[in-house]
């Protein structure tokens, strides 16, 4: 037993794995409650976690140099798929999906991985800090897919992809001066951007800041999830006892709003446990850089 642990300890970061395990278990537990105690949803999520762990362990076997070679291939195929989606894609209102018969997936998901790998490849090939030419190339690599995704339209994913690339540049050691200038430019651009985004996107932003504007319409989800979170209190209403979710006041509770379900049922104490697990994962992940 002790030998098994010590072997594991040599190959695996045990605190990180522990943190991830806690998060996975908590996720499954809340999902069961949020899905209306559906064992089907529970089992399929467990299977997905299993697949995820398998994929993670497989990729971990690859040396970083292999990843650097795979990155551009992923990136180019991702871009091609995005273009395909723009013409032949599925989806209500927005065209984001590719239907492969058995599975439907969003090509933008590929870019979430490909963009940071490609940026890392560009940055690591040159001297640090990156030169102006290198930076320009990075910006191009980031914004081609971002604009394609934004046109789908899927502002949320576009922002995520942009961030995943920008963070790599940041980690690559960019000078604070450039960060300051670009943040300043971004702030200046914000009012202009307002005219380019669509009405429902404006609505979402307005609703974020003032959900009570339209309590039965756009603000409904936010108000109901705030009620769910707030009514959880210190210790929560208990597992499977959240009235907001079980009486179906919270929409989409098995997806985006699952955090509200968790807060309602496990309270502030549960939130602290969740945050500590996340903190453990994040701290162990970045501790190698600092």
């Amino acid at each position: 037993m002790i030998t098994l642990l010590s072997i594991l300890n040599r190959r695996v970061d045990l605190p990180l794995a522990g943190g991830l395990a806690v998060l996975c278990v908590l996720g499954l537990v809340v999902l069961f409650s949020a899905s209306g105690e559906s064992t089907g949803v529970f089992i399929s999520q467990a299977i997905r976690i299993g697949i995820g762990i398998f994929v993670m362990l497989s990729i971990a076997q690859l040396p970083p140099s292999a990843l650097l070679r795979i990155g551009p291939i992923l990136y180019v195929s991702g871009i091609l798929l995005l273009i395909t989606v723009a013409f032949w894609g599925d989806g209500q209102g927005a065209r984001r999906w590719i239907d492969l018969g058995y599975i439907r997936f969003q090509p933008s998901e590929i870019l979430k991985l490909a963009v940071p790998i490609v940026i890392a490849a560009i940055v690591s090939n040159r001297s640090l800090p990156p030169s102006a030419r290198g930076l320009l190339l990075c910006v191009l690599v980031i914004f081609v897919p971002v604009i394609l995704i934004y046109l789908q339209p899927d502002l949320g994913t576009a922002i995520l992809v942009a961030l995943s690339g920008l963070i790599i540049i940041f980690l690559g050691g960019i000078s604070w001066r450039i960060i300051r200038y670009s943040s300043f430019l971004l702030c200046c651009f914000a009012p202009v951007a307002w005219y380019f985004i669509r009405d429902y996107q404006k609505q979402r932003i307005l609703t974020l800041f003032a959900p009570e504007r339209d309590p039965l319409g756009a603000g409904y989800h936010i108000i109901q999830s705030k009620i769910a979170i707030g009514s959880g209190g210190t210790y929560g209403k208990g597992w499977l006892n959240g009235t907001q979710s079980h009486l179906e006041f919270l929409p989409e509770r098995a997806t985006d709003f699952i955090f509200a379900v968790y807060c309602e049922e496990f309270g502030f104490v549960g939130v602290l446990v969740l945050f500590m697990a996340y903190a453990l994962v994040v701290i162990r992940s970045i501790s190698h850089f600092i």
Partner: peptide
Amino acid sequence: LQIQNNEHFSTRSL
């Protein structure tokens, strides 16, 4: 939300 305003949101959920 959860500690300070718990009463308010509890009422609203009720």
